[in-house]
Every structure is written in C-alpha cells, then in structure tokens.
Simulated scan of single mutants.
Amino acid sequence: MTELAILFEDAEALVIDKPAGLPLDRPRAGGPSLDDRLDELKLGFQRVPMPVHRLDRDTSGCLLLARNPKALKRFSAAFEEKRVEKRYLGVLAGDIVGEEGTIELALSKVSTAKDGWRMIPARKGKPSVTHWRKLDTRGGLTLVEFRPETGRTHQIRVHAASGLGVPLLGDPVYGAGKGASRTMLHCAALAIPREGKEPVAATSPLPADFTALGFQDG
C-alpha cells in the first residue's frame, strides 16, 4: 500500500495527494478506499480528519481534510461560498478550438436502469461555471487547465465533453473510455482563504501517466 503524500499540514487542515483509483468511500463491491486510510492520517491528533470536498475515484491530486469539526464547518462554508481557488489539469481526447474561455452549462442528474446515473446539461439544472485555458497539444491530445467556479458533480468532465466538444481521455461515462487506464483529470492546486491566518495552499505535481504522454505543467 503506497503512503499518502501530505502536501499541506497545520493544526486544522491536511491536504493529501490523492492517488488515482482510490475512492473516498468504501465501494459496494469492496476494495480499498480513503475511509480505510483515515486512521493513518491522524498524525498524532486524536480525531480522524474528514474530507471537506470530493474527488472522483479516478481523479488524482489535492484533497483537503479538516482536522476538527469547527474547521470542517468553516472550510465547507468556503466551498459553498465559492471562495476556494481550484486548479485542475485534464488531458482531452482530441484537439479543441480556441485558446481559452468560460463554459456556463447548467447540470442535472439523470438515471436510467440501463446506463445508471450521469450528469447532463439541462436548462433547469444547477448553474455551473468553468474557466479553461489550452496549455499544450501532443499526439492529437490536448492538455487543458480548468478553474471551476462551482463544484457540481462531474462538472469538468461534462463541461469538457459538452462545452468544449471533446471528452477527457479515458472517461468511460462522457467519452469512449479509451486511450488511458483512467479518466485523465488531476487537481493540481487548491487554495482556501482563512480569517486572520495564512490560506491553506497546496500544489500537486503532475502524475506519471500525464508526463508519459509528453505533457508538463505550466
């Protein structure tokens, strides 16, 4: 079992570098999850730290955990009030038109017996905003920086597929699920402001499966 890298640590916050493939909650079918690893993240504290936000199983990178209930409440409020800066990097399964822009596509959850649940663009859905910038194109793939303003489920994945017209490489739900062993999305940086204190700020290096495609951050 690989050790979880700590990207930021103080008395009220931890930011870990979540590996791709590790779900936050215990899967119904069994198998490892972050739930099983929280004890080892006490790091001398009595309380088990609690995740403040969510990353999909496949998504790697910065994940914030609160080390006490008061911090969890404050950090959760910062996410709700859109005061958290989030920077994601994604590899798209093709080239895109334009260099940068903003995607505003409201999202709604749908469920069918055949396909299970997924998020779709819907006029009556929840407002969802993502700013994006093209960073590099290699071998017919595109590295894009995403800065989501809102934090809807699967927001970047749907905004890539439906807003930019090209899904994330390896995405089995909104794309063909080919070309990579996972959905190629990485939370590269996170910054949360705090009153009277330095912000919680962390950056996560680009994972090996991104650099194997020839991409570099920045």
Results as ranks from 00 to 15, higher is better:
Ile120Cys: 06
Lys70Asp: 12
Leu72Ser: 13
Glu81Met: 09
Asp39Trp: 03
Gly116Pro: 12
Leu89Gly: 11
Met50Asn: 03
Lys114Gly: 01
Glu81Cys: 03
Tyr88Gly: 14
Thr102Ser: 12
Lys114Phe: 10
Leu55Glu: 04
Arg118Trp: 06
Lys70Ser: 11
Asp115Thr: 11
Pro69Lys: 14
Lys42Arg: 15
Ala106His: 03
Asp36His: 14
Val110Met: 02
Gly44Val: 09
Ala78Phe: 03
His53Tyr: 00
Leu89Asn: 06
Ala66Asp: 09
Ile103Cys: 03
Leu38Asp: 10
Lys86Ile: 04
Val97Asp: 14
Asp36Asn: 12
Met50Gly: 01
Glu99Asp: 15
His53Lys: 02
Glu85Phe: 00
Lys82Asn: 11
Arg37His: 13
Lys114Met: 06
Gly90Asn: 07
Lys86Ala: 08
Ala66Cys: 04
Gly61Glu: 13
Gly30His: 08
Gly30Gln: 10
Ala71Arg: 02
Ile96Met: 10
Leu105Glu: 10
Asp35Gly: 02
Phe75Met: 13
Glu100Gly: 03
Lys70His: 05
Arg83Gln: 15
Thr59Met: 05
Arg54Leu: 04
Glu40Lys: 05
Leu38Phe: 07
Ala122Pro: 00
Tyr88His: 07
Pro27Ile: 11
Gly30Asp: 10
Glu80Asn: 03
Leu89Val: 08
Val110Ser: 01
Lys109Gln: 13
Gly98Asp: 04
Thr102Pro: 04
Pro27Arg: 06
Ile120Ser: 05
Arg67Leu: 04
Ala77Cys: 01
Pro69Gln: 10
Val97Glu: 14
Gly61Asn: 09
Phe79Glu: 03
Leu34Asn: 05
Pro49Phe: 10
Ser60Trp: 13
Leu89Phe: 15
Glu80Ser: 12
Asp56Ile: 07
Leu38Met: 07
Leu65Thr: 11
Asp115Met: 05
Leu55Pro: 08
Ala29Gly: 14
Phe45Ile: 01
Gly94Thr: 08
Ser33Cys: 10
Asp58Lys: 04
Ile120His: 02
Thr112Tyr: 04
Asp95Pro: 00
Gly98Val: 03
Ser111Arg: 15
Glu40His: 00
Asp56Trp: 03
Glu80Thr: 09
Leu38Cys: 08
Ile120Met: 12
Arg74Gly: 00
Glu104Ile: 06
Lys73Tyr: 08
Asp39Ala: 13
Gly101Ser: 05
Thr112Ser: 15
Asp36Gly: 15
Thr112Gln: 02
Asp39Lys: 01
Arg118Cys: 08
Val97Phe: 10
Leu72Asp: 04
Gly94Arg: 03
Val97Leu: 12
Gly44Phe: 15
Ala66Gln: 07
Val52His: 13
Leu105Arg: 10
Ile96Asp: 04
Lys42Met: 08
Trp117Ala: 14
Phe79Asp: 06
